[in-house]
Amino acid sequence: MSGAARRYILHMEDHANDVDIALLKDDPSALILRHQVTIRIIVKRFIESGMFQASEFDDVVQHVNARLLEKLPRIRAQYNGLSLFRTYISSIIRHECLDLHASRESDIHTERLLADPPNPESANPDNRLLIEHDVKVFRAIIRQFHDEMPKLLVCLKLVYRIPIEPKDILAWWPGCPEPDRSAFLNAISEGGKSLPARERFALLRPIANGADNSHSSADSVRHWTDDRIHVILRLLNGSPPTSSHTPETLGILLEDFFTPFLLHRQYIPGETDNNDTA
């Protein structure tokens, strides 16, 4: 490492990303050394997910190191400096692990994991950590729906029979007339929750059409919701699958989203960015 780079690092201890960028320019090998912890954390996660065996840990870490060394010129050329380097290199490490897994076709471990799904209600501390991790991932998935999020949350509440509040409707349709809002909320609270999904979505139809300025059928909104439930489940389970979430476990995560009991964080309708320190 050059003296200039070392001096630069000493003065930039609190600016980890600037240090990364300086090393990428001046001493890429030192940069890879600096990210050994990141590599180890990611490989460990892949082992926890069953994609590699614990005994392969060092081998996989060294494989990633070797690939990163090979790729350094490309990384220097392609990294555009707009994201944190730590996140960027994590993406590369992840792809290296996925590629290695694909080349080995070690599906046996995945099958074993799928045969033994995590129990969200278990008091086991390890499982507890897994649940907390899944809660964070679920929240991250929901936020990727961006401006569809308020609609999605109302529809998910309807599917999972979670009480819908006026603010949920207003987050989706800020201009929703009070009579329409009250009519729907009254209907859904007075026995509406016991209705089949199709009829519950029929109650929602006027709100959905008003909010989206459309003339959709109740079935169309229900199918839209079902489609997103499947997307969320696929995202939660990963590709290749490393979890075994079902519509039931999704319901638990959703309940926690509105009334946190797994992690501390309150969803506030209308807010896209909450103080969820991930």
């Binding site: 730590r86 995202l235 991930a278």
Partner: peptide, 22 residues
């Protein structure tokens, strides 16, 4: 899936002292 897969690996990591975001 790409974003979620990467986030999943970093979900438990603390992003402190990264300095100003580029």
């Amino acid at each position: 899936a790409e974003v979620t897969g990467l986030f999943s690996l970093l979900a438990d990591e603390v992003y402190a002292a990264t300095g100003p975001h580029p």
